[in-house]
Amino acid sequence: MSSFLLSFRRNRGAFVGAVVLAAVAALAAAAPLLFPFSPWDMRGVPFAQPGQEGFLLGSDNLGRDVAAGIAHGAHVSLLIGAVSTLAALALGVTVGAIAGFAGGAIDDALMRFTELVQTVPSFVLAIVLVAIFTPSLASIVAAIAIVSWPPVARVVRAEFLSLRRREFVQAAEVLGRSRADIVLREILPNALSPIIVLASLMVASAILLESALSFLGLGDPNRMSWGFMIGAGRSVIRLAWWTSVFPGLAIFLTVLALNLVGEGLNDALNPRVARKRG
């Protein structure tokens, strides 16, 4: 494990990404303390410039504090990123594991279904799903999970296909162990590295997807989010650039950080690259 941490730290980009990610998480956690009021409250004059009137990052067209919006919005972004990724993993790993382990007709059926889902443009499908189920935190998470599991299923299936031919899996079979036992204890732990790497990148795309949905006004109306702020600020971008630039910067930094971490994980968990470094 320590060698894993070492090779992860040696990758400077991944280290910076992890630090940025930790800072965003800390901001989300500290939001109620730093800004002990609702981000929807009007706190002063509209269109205050950054630094004026006690607004660190300015205020928007209704006099809402942009800094408070970003801090509270971090909460929603991270929550949706994490929960929808977990949901997509649960779905994708299950489908991929069954397809890869069972093989044959079951594999064919599941993979054709996966491809069917993949051919539908994911963002359009997400919009339709959220619109049908009325925008809420739960429906957004569900929509993002439903459009992002197919790549997980494909990666897991490929890993399972190659691992189940390995002799240690055959040995488990000969020992008379149950299928669930073989899948969960022999194959899955060995397929974990690519899944973890994929997950870190999926969190990033989930955050982007949520921002895009909020931008279109399909976000949870009770929660402040970065995408909503950009959407609300876009009509006044020439008058008050800060209302959309700062939330945009927040999305950019978080997604970049997640990508860097994902790449670092890939290097650290991929034995071929790790050996080259060591």
Binding site: F168, A171, E186, N190
Partner: peptide
């Protein structure tokens, strides 16, 4: 399974590396 057991060829792939 208790009565008939097997030994495999490749000592590098016949043991689960994570256990």
């Amino acid at each position: 399974r208790r009565r008939i057991q097997m030994i495999f060829q490749d000592p590098y792939s016949s043991l689960n590396p994570r256990r």
